[in-house]
């Protein structure tokens, strides 16, 4: 099996010359991209990646998405996208089950569908591109070990064990800490849900109970906000290291200001760029869908104050707009 990697995209302009199959007959390739939602930096960044790829490959891209993460809002957008008779579809599914039949139906019409970010419970799509949360957790664990010098007590503030994707972020972290860093003691994982205040309560108490608390790993942004408030309130800002998820402009600023010590940066830009590239290449007959893995995980980076200006890291940070 062959993996589509980021490198494929680099030579995309050249590959465009090789066009000649299927869709190209009646004008340029037209791809519909239905996002999970719009208006947040994560998806704006994905759009930037998708548009960059489309421009380089000379394909037409139509981007749509609802203002909220909501199946009921996304479904009509997907149906409208199909009505426009595209050559290929990219979808960030807002529901793993409800969209299976939709995607199957589109595939049955001979239109390749690539899913990004979220995934479907059955792999009826051509390929799914998303973050490997377990790997991300492992990256965070190594960043934590580095931030605290490989020793001390660490707390994980997660979401809810029933939310598998988020729990993977915690589990990946635990696996790596346990395997590689015997000097780090993990406190029992806490689950404040999406409640900032509850996260602050938990972290405040953990600080009281554990004078040797050196680091806190948060698996979502509300946990990070509550955690940072509690740490600053306890006068431990900078002393207790905090690792947070995602790299919105606000979070990047907080990283630079010392509120956070590392950010786990997912790869929305690459999910956008690589998905458009893959669909284009399939349509041009350069890639045989049958040879693709079910899932492709674009590479992630960890941003720290030291590497934030590295081009590779800077390019991965999320944006408010594409210019």
């Amino acid at each position: 099996m062959r993996k589509i990697t980021q490198t494929l995209a680099i030579g995309a302009a050249a590959l465009a010359l090789a066009a000649g199959t299927a869709a190209a007959e009646d004008g340029p390739i037209r791809i519909e991209f239905v996002a999970g939602m719009v208006g947040i930096p994560f998806y704006t960044t994905m759009e930037c990646g998708a548009r960059d790829a489309a421009a380089e490959l000379g394909v037409e891209l139509n981007w749509s998405g609802a203002p909220q993460w909501d199946l009921a809002l996304q479904l009509p957008l997907l149906q409208a996208a199909v009505e426009r008779d595209p050559h290929g579809v990219i979808l960030a599914p807002t529901d793993p089950v409800a969209l299976i039949t939709e995607v199957q139906a589109i595939m049955d019409r001979g239109i390749p569908v690539v899913t990004v970010d979220g995934s479907l419970a059955e792999p009826v799509d051509v390929q799914n591109m998303r973050t490997n949360n377990r790997v991300a957790g492992g990256l965070a664990a190594r960043a934590m070990a580095e931030a605290i010098g490989g020793e001390g007590t660490v707390l994980i503030v997660a979401l809810n064990p029933a939310v598998t994707g988020n729990q993977d972020r915690a589990d990946g972290f635990i696996e790596v800490i346990e395997a590689e860093f015997p000097g780090i003691r993990l406190l029992p994982t806490e689950y404040p849900g999406s409640d900032q205040n509850r996260a602050a309560e938990i972290v405040s108490a953990a600080i009281q109970a554990n004078p040797d608390l050196r680091g806190i790993y948060t698996t979502h942004s509300n946990a990070a906000v509550g955690t940072s408030s509690a740490v600053i309130g306890a006068g431990k800002g900078g002393e207790i290291k905090i690792i947070a998820y995602d790299a919105d402009p606000q979070q990047v600023r907080d990283l630079k200001d010392g509120v956070y010590d590392a950010l786990v940066v997912q790869s929305p830009y690459l999910e956008g760029y690589d998905s458009v590239t893959l669909v284009t290449r399939i349509l041009r007959g350069e890639v045989d869908p049958a040879t693709l893995d079910d899932v492709y995980y674009p590479p992630m980076v960890i941003a720290t104050r030291d590497n934030i200006d590295d081009p590779e890291v800077a390019a991965a940070l999320y944006r408010d707009s594409c210019d």
Partner: peptide
């Protein structure tokens, strides 16, 4: 807010 917290 489009579902994300008000930044800055």
């Amino acid at each position: 807010t489009n579902g994300s917290n008000v930044p800055y």
